[in-house]
Each structure stands twice: as C-alpha cells, then as structure tokens.
Design a protein around this nucleic acid. Sequence first.
DNA 1: ACGTAGGCTGAACAATCGTTTAACATGCTA
DNA 2: TAGCATGTTAAACGATTGTTCAGCCTACGT
Lengths: 229, 229
Amino acid sequence: MLYMCSTRDDDRTARAVIRDEALRLFAERGPDAVTVRQIATAAGVSPGLVVHHFGSKDGLRTEVDQHVLAVFEAMLGQLTGEGGADLLDPQTGSLSEALAQHLPPDSPLPGYLRRLLLSDTDAGRLLFRRLYELSRAALAQLADAGLAAPGRDPDARAAFLLANDLALFLLRDRLTDVLGTDPLSAEGITRWAPEMLSIYAGGLTASPDDTNTPVPPIPDTPRGDPPTA
Amino acid sequence: MLYMCSTRDDDRTARAVIRDEALRLFAERGPDAVTVRQIATAAGVSPGLVVHHFGSKDGLRTEVDQHVLAVFEAMLGQLTGEGGADLLDPQTGSLSEALAQHLPPDSPLPGYLRRLLLSDTDAGRLLFRRLYELSRAALAQLADAGLAAPGRDPDARAAFLLANDLALFLLRDRLTDVLGTDPLSAEGITRWAPEMLSIYAGGLTASPDDTNTPVPPIPDTPRGDPPTA
DNA sequence: ACGTAGGCTGAACAATCGTTTAACATGCTA
DNA sequence: TAGCATGTTAAACGATTGTTCAGCCTACGT
C-alpha cells in the first residue's frame, strides 16, 4: 500500500494528507485562490490523485468543510463538557479565546472558520446559526443565574454578544497590526480580556477595578467634568 | 466623443461606468471572482477597453480602491462636520449606523469596504488603522468629557469598541439571516441600538430601562437559583 | 502463482483567463 | 480639408485552470 515516491514521514493516508494540505492552503488564501496543482504539490502527489480521491476540487472543498465543522463540533463538545455550559459567559472567557487556547498557535482552523463564516455558503450560514443558538442559550442561562439581564430583545442581545466575540476572530490580523499584539495569543488576552470584562460588567463608564463591585451611578452632569484620574 | 453603440442613458464617461460597474461587481463577489469580460459586459463595452483605460485588471482594482477610499473619506469629513466629533460615541450611534444611513440601501460601498477591511492588502490595513485612530480619538474625547472611562489600556479599549462596531458591518448578512432583520436598516437599528446602548451604559447586568439609572449590584449567590420569572 | 482492484502518475484536453494587437470611427486642430 | 490623438471594437495569443485518460505499480484474494 505504501510505495509513495516522495519522502513523507507520517502515517497518514495520502487522502488525509491532501485534505490537510488543502485545509491549510484554503485557510491561508481562500479556496478560489488555491489551485489543484498547488494542493497536489504541497501534499507531494500528482494533480490527478486529488481529483481521483475527491471527485473534483469542489468535492475536496466540501469534504474539508465537513472535516473542519466536525473538528470544531468535537472541540465544542469537549469545552462544554469540561468547563460547564458557561462557555460563552463573558466572565469566564469568550468563544474566540477558548478556541485559540485549545489549538496550536499555527493551526489553520481559525483561519478556515473565519473564511467559512464570511463566505456566502450554506455551510457558513449553518455555522453562524449554530453559534447564534449557542449564544442565545448562554445568555438565557446567564439571565437565569442572575448574572446578566436578558435585555429588551434577548435575540438581538445574544446576536450582539456573539458578533462582538467573533469580531476578535475576524479582525485578528488587523488588531494585531494596530495593537502590536495578537489578541488571541496568551499575551494578547491579558490586554483584551480586562477591557471586555470591565465593559460587560459595568459599562463604558466603569473604571477597570470595579469589575466585582457595584457600578457607581452615572453622574447626571452630562459633560464638562474634569477627567477622571 | 459619444458614439457608443450601446444604449446607455447617463452622462458618465465610459471610464466612469467601467469603474462603477467594477466597484459593484467587486463588492458583490470579490475582485478575484470577477473577470474583465464580466465587467466589460456590465459596462456595455468591450474587454479591451477596460485594459485600455486602466492598464490592467489590477490597475482597475487599485483605482476602485482609491475611489472608494476617497468617497469614504469625504463622507467621514461630512459626518464629523455636521454631527460634531462624537461620531463614534456609542450614545449617539455607531460608525456602521452612520455609514448605512447616509448611503442608499443598495450602495455597493459597504460591501466593498467590508472586503477591503478583510483583505490582506496595504489599502485594507491603512483603512483599519485610520478607523482605529478615529476610535482612539473618540474614546479619549469621551473620557475627557467624563462620559467614559479610558480603561486600564485605552488602546485596547478603543480597539475593542471599534471591533464591536465593525462586527455589525462584517457580519451583516449573517445577522440578517438569524435575526430576520438587516441590523443596518432603519428597522434593524431600532432593535440593535438599545441593546448596544444598554450594555455600554451599564454592562450586561443592567436592565434596558436602567440606561440612565444606577446599576444594581450583582447578587452574591452564584448559581442554582430558580429561574427568575 | 496469478489475476484483479485500487492507489497513483504524467500527459493531454477543452475552457477560460488577462492581455495584446490591428483596425476603425470620431473629434479637434492647423 | 488633411492629419493626428483618442475612444472603441473584434479577434487572437499565451498562460493557467479543472478535469480526463491511459497506463503503471503494488497489495491482496483465490
């Protein structure tokens, strides 16, 4: 079964290698910008073999989609299993953080999920809807526990929180550029999380140290106050 | 000068028509997914004319980039001129809202800016950096006015607020899908803004009506409470 | 031992891409 | 009115794309 001419030192099937390399390249440049020949070269096989195993380039893309979604779902199950159901509780961390922390720093998965979420495909829509339902459930649970108000429009509020969480994900490169720190790295989270926590806990007017204490009332004098030291 | 065979009923130069159609198509499907022939057909000209006017497809893309950035910059100038400098004040509305409201509903500009922000190009990085500086300045101004705390890390806080604002923009289609309302439409804003305002004003625990009243302290009993009816 | 199914290759195919070229029509200028 | 720059088209070119095909090599069942 193994007579591959190239020197691949892992025990993965050629099929799996093609899938993994395609995943990596798709995440990096997008499926449309990657050619079958590039995938074949990266996997150390011939272009014909790619089609032979997956029927077509689109078949390969579909299978990578399924694979990524399966891995993501498995990771989601593991996270809700270990950390309880408060995965999306802003107090304990965000979805993006959890994802970044449970993945090797060079994993192509975040990038692929990013493209999937932004792509105008059924898979992307399904993924977002899944996250949305998760966000809704988390908000409802938080509300039940008295840790958050459901808001006037719980659906919109859940969507708002989810969108904010995903923004960190979608704008990761841009934020790294302006902040000088990858917000999804261990170091970046130490910058990001306190601000997020502070705002979610007490709003924009709360000072960072008020995280666990009641929020002072907003002064009635609208502006012109001396800057708060 | 005008002897075009096609029946175009506007007074724009063929060059401008090509640029506008390219802008529309680029925003819709992305520059790489749009062919020169498609642009030419949409503009009612021959493919050769596109290259004749813009040198190459990439030249056209660059010019569309410049044009979009110029229009955006002009709109930014107008907005800060009329509405004062608190354009990014969450109390008065977000950047996304302002952009959506001052543009026809079918304008390709938001879509193009979205792709620009997410594209790995210098133009995209520059645009984001511009918005980031705007956000920093707005936060500093808000802090001076006593309407917001600068936070422990003002740069990170400004980035957080900007990312949240842009999320609405980047995930517009997905949010429309799950909410049933375009969050950037007039109707959608009435759902979105109150939740955003409420959280920014008093945090997650504030009830929507507490916008201008103090926030109640978080109860000490962590969980296991009966669901609050 | 032998045949056969499947992993795999390299060359070739048709289609489509961005771009080039030659030619033509038009308006301005001298 | 002759001439020239400019706007415009149709056809064609080379490169690249996804895909097909014929055939080789190896492993496995009988």
